[in-house]
Amino acid sequence: MWIWYWLAAISYIVLGIWHKWMLNWFVGPVWLVAVVVLGPWIAERVSDRLGRRPEPRA
């Protein structure tokens, strides 16, 4: 899970420096929860799709 926390922190800090409206008590917590919940979910589906081999032809 650490990778998702790092990703959330780095992306939020970088975006926050240039878009300071994001640095508020609502966006910050939602950002972390969204990345930690949606990140693994998306990664799982992407890896499932990439890992799925074509059915062998009969």
């Binding site: 972390l32 930690v36 919940v37």
Partner: peptide, 27 residues
């Protein structure tokens, strides 16, 4: 939310504090 989301929700205020500290100081 799944459990990982609930834990993140609990940690989110710390996360926000740390990130705003770094972002505002850097800016």
């Amino acid at each position: 939310l799944p459990e990982r989301g609930l834990v993140a929700l609990y940690q989110a205020t710390f996360f926000y504090g740390l990130c705003r500290l770094i972002a505002w100081t850097t800016w």
